[in-house]
């Protein structure tokens, strides 16, 4: 075998190994990405596997038990009806930007019988986050936040 051919064979072995790694990676950690409607219609396909979903947090549905770090809320598709929702439960710290009507991306498992989504990760998608907006001409800055009752100033 010529030397260059030897190198070619070695190279091909490495390339195949890398492709195999990628293939196994996708197979083992790939999850479906669904909308709320797709999840409700198609959950049988998941067979208990994890799934990633996105949706809008429905105003008025948030129950936040801070003491036990237990956040519950409903989500729906952005353009879907309020009636088609999934109940989400998330037992971790609530992100700063979490509030009614934001878009969230969740990962976790869906319990179809109880229409309950047990989320392990919660990301708030905020497309306007770094997008500047021009304030209106009559804009008055500094609506003071009243965060905590009876709090004293530090300095």
């Amino acid at each position: 075998m010529k030397k260059n051919q030897k190198f070619l064979v070695a190279g091909i072995i490495i390339v195949v190994a890398i492709i195999y790694l990628v293939f196994m990676g996708v197979k083992e950690s790939g999850v479906y990405f669904m909308t709320v409607a797709e999840l409700k219609a198609d959950h049988s396909r998941l067979a208990g596997e994890g799934v990633r979903i996105s949706g809008t947090v429905i105003d008025g549905s948030i129950e936040d038990d801070v003491r036990n770090l237990n956040l519950n809320f409903n989500i729906k598709d952005e353009d879907g009806p309020d009636s088609s929702f999934v109940r989400v439960t998330y037992k971790d710290v609530k992100p700063d930007s979490f509030k009614p009507d934001v878009q969230v991306i969740l990962e976790g498992k869906y319990d179809a019988a109880n229409n309950l989504f047990k989320a392990t990760t919660l990301l708030v998608k905020c497309p306007s986050r770094y997008e500047g907006e021009v304030p209106p001409p009559d804009y008055k800055p500094g609506s003071k936040v009243d965060a905590v009752e009876g709090i004293k100033n530090a300095d």
């Binding site: 990628v22 996708v26 950690s29 790939g30 999850v31 479906y32 990405f33 669904m34």
Partner: peptide, 28 residues
């Protein structure tokens, strides 16, 4: 690249959007 583009690739070829997250990148 594959992991980043996989949602698009999978949707194009199978019609299902499949994502891979940090575990994929850690594993591979």
């Amino acid at each position: 690249f594959w992991g980043t583009m996989f949602p698009l690739i999978s949707e194009l070829f199978t019609g299902n959007k499949i994502t891979v997250g940090p575990p994929f990148f850690a594993q591979v």
